[in-house]
């Protein structure tokens, strides 16, 4: 898959992406391509910037600078109507599922159809049932989200995300809060979606096992920089100590300057109080 990927067009192109929260720089000029039909896994520890990066990829957050092209269109130069049309080609499964609690599972799944198509109710219901079958939730359409388990909520969210047959599907931490068995089932489902529906899938996760199982390519983010982009095999054999530390969950021992460390802990309070340091 990864070798063949090089010949396919990029559906997402990210160039020099920089993001600030206030004065803090979160992403430091990221460049990456995600090609058609691949599963790209974005990995990184907490605070690496992967969630912010995903929000940019989903066109939910405007970066400080840089360009994001999705399906060939520069997201932030589009008109509102064009952006809406582009979003119809994207599907997202959020970490907690983000199902609307006031609607049944079926209504949740049909919502994009209600909003964007003129299909009659019966057709929409049939389509919703079909997508529920795809995620092994057939017969659950009349339940409320509160009646589902964590794994079921995520699968229902996948059904909603694929109801419009999107070109690109995003997953935010699909394994979070799930036991290993359910998590593995979800991984199998992601692979099935790629193979059966030909979708491009982008998954943000910090679960190594899951990433190694599903990824065609992996992007490793660390402190706002891309450390690595490549296949699972390339990642595992990468010589960089920083990457191997991340993979083996080892924290780096940074050299600490004692004065700097004290200033970080106390801020300017000691000086403000007129006390000697």
């Amino acid at each position: 898959m990864a070798e063949a990927a090089q010949n396919r067009p990029a559906v997402i192109e990210v160039r020099n992406l920089v993001t600030h929260y206030g004065s803090r720089q979160i992403l430091n000029g990221i460049n990456v391509d995600i090609v058609e039909g691949e599963i790209m896994v974005i990995m990184g520890g907490s605070g690496s910037g992967k969630s912010t990066f995903l929000r940019h990829l989903m066109a939910l957050q405007r970066p400080t600078s840089g360009v994001i092209k999705i399906l060939g269109e520069d997201v932030w130069s589009l008109s509102q109507k064009a952006l809406f049309n582009l979003r119809k080609k994207l599907g997202v499964t959020f970490q907690g599922g983000a199902l609307f609690s006031s609607m049944t599972v079926g209504e949740n799944i049909m919502l994009p159809l209600y909003e964007h198509t003129k299909l009659d109710r019966m057709t929409m219901e049939i389509m919703a049932r079909m997508k529920l079958e795809v995620v092994d939730l057939g017969g659950f359409e009349n339940l409320m989200p509160s009646e589902l388990s964590g794994g079921m909520i995520k699968r229902a969210a996948v059904a909603r995300a694929i109801i419009m047959d999107p070109r690109i599907l995003f997953f935010d931490e699909p394994s979070a809060g799930l036991d290993p068995v359910v998590s593995s089932q979800l991984d199998d489902m992601i692979l099935r979606l790629r193979d059966a529906m030909g979708m491009t899938i982008c998954v943000v996760t910090h679960e190594l096992e899951s990433a190694f199982k599903i990824a065609d390519r992996i992007t490793v983010l660390d402190r706002g920089d891309i450390l690595f982009v490549g296949t699972v095999a390339e990642l595992k054999s990468h010589p960089s100590e920083r990457i191997q530390n991340l993979l083996n969950r080892r924290s780096e021992e940074a050299e600490i300057d004692a004065d700097e460390y004290l200033r970080r802990l106390t801020g300017d309070k000691l000086e403000a109080e007129g006390m000697p340091r």
Binding site: R87, F94, Q95, A98, L99, F100, S101, E115
Partner: peptide, 22 residues
């Protein structure tokens, strides 16, 4: 507020549904 915390507002936006309108 609950919808915002549960990312339901984000979900609306990525579905191409404007939360203000909806």
């Amino acid at each position: 507020g609950t919808m915002k915390i549960n990312q339901e507002l984000d979900a609306l936006e990525v579905m191409g549904i404007n939360p203000v309108r909806f």
